[in-house]
Amino acid sequence: MQKIGKIVVVAAAALALSACGQAPKTQAAAPAGPPVPSSSAAQATQSKGRECTAEDVKTTGKFGEVPTITVPDDCDPPKKLVTKDLSEGTGEGAKAGQKLKMNYLLVTWSDKQKLDSSFDRGQTFDLNLGAGDVIPGWDQGLAGIKQGARRLLIIPPDLAYGDGGGRMKPNETLVFVTDAVAVG
């Protein structure tokens, strides 16, 4: 009986601490999908000996098509933001303050599962670049994108959700394929 009481007290304390936590400064770039359970085994993975690059992450699909993302098993997630244009687009590159209409697919690094996709909803995600409407990895990673471009973003936890939140595991690296449907 005493053991159960301790579990209840610990659970209540954890709930109270999470409720008192600081409100996020940014909103999710792609908030949807089922809750993802935390796994201490996934958090305590051993290094593979090298950081992955954009070339290690495989994608399929052309601009406007639903992409696929394959996260590799043989390298560690990058510690810095990685961007790679998969198709160039046209016109001026996006600048801070401009409105963007984006489509995206989000895969989490730790479990290599799709967490969200605007392609599935058939509706773009709209934002003001550089205004803090989205996670910092999007504000930084989408700078310079041109209309009609498809860009791969690999976003480390410090530019995403850090210690977690919502359906995001703590210290999760995020992998997006983004399409710039409209810039400006």
Score class of each variant (00 low, 15 high):
V134D: 15
D126I: 09
G132F: 07
V82M: 07
T45I: 08
K58C: 05
D111G: 14
A143T: 15
G130S: 08
N128F: 08
Q123N: 13
E65V: 00
Q98K: 01
P156W: 03
D120N: 13
S39G: 10
S117I: 06
D116W: 13
N128Q: 14
K112H: 14
I135M: 14
A131I: 07
L81E: 06
D56A: 04
Y104H: 10
I69S: 05
P72Y: 05
P72Q: 03
Q98E: 11
V82Q: 07
R50A: 12
I135N: 15
L152S: 05
N128V: 15
G132S: 12
T70Q: 10
G130M: 08
L105S: 07
G61L: 00
D139P: 06
I135C: 13
A96K: 10
R150W: 02
S47R: 11
W109M: 13
E92L: 04
E92A: 12
K48Q: 15
L127Q: 11
L129Q: 10
L127T: 14
G144N: 12
W109S: 11
I145C: 10
K84Y: 08
G91K: 04
T83G: 06
Q123S: 15
L129E: 12
I145R: 05
D74T: 09
D74P: 05
K101V: 01
L100W: 02
I145N: 06
R150Q: 08
K62H: 01
E55P: 04
E65D: 01
G122T: 09
I155W: 06
L105F: 05
G144R: 15
L100T: 00
I135A: 14
W109C: 13
P156V: 02
S117K: 13
L129S: 07
Q123G: 11
R151P: 02
A41D: 09
D56R: 04
D158Y: 01
V66C: 00
A143D: 14
K95R: 06
G122R: 11
R50L: 11
T68K: 10
I154F: 08
F63V: 00
K58H: 06
K99R: 07
A96D: 14
F125G: 02
K62L: 00
K99C: 00
A160S: 13
I155S: 09
S118K: 14
F119P: 11
S118N: 11
E65C: 00
Y104S: 04
L106R: 14
T59Q: 03
I145D: 04
L100S: 02
P72N: 04
P136E: 05
L152D: 02
S39C: 06
L153E: 05
A149H: 07
D56F: 06
Q43E: 04
K95M: 04
L106G: 09
P78H: 09
G144V: 11
S87Y: 01
S110R: 14
Q46N: 05
T124A: 15
D74V: 04
G137R: 13
L115M: 14
G130H: 05
C52V: 10
C52H: 13
S39E: 01
K58A: 10
G141N: 14
S118F: 10
A160C: 01
R151F: 03
S87H: 01
D56Q: 07
A96F: 01
D85G: 03
P77G: 02
G89S: 03
G97E: 06
S117V: 08
G89I: 02
Q46T: 08
L159P: 01
R50C: 09
L153Y: 07
P77Y: 06
K84C: 02
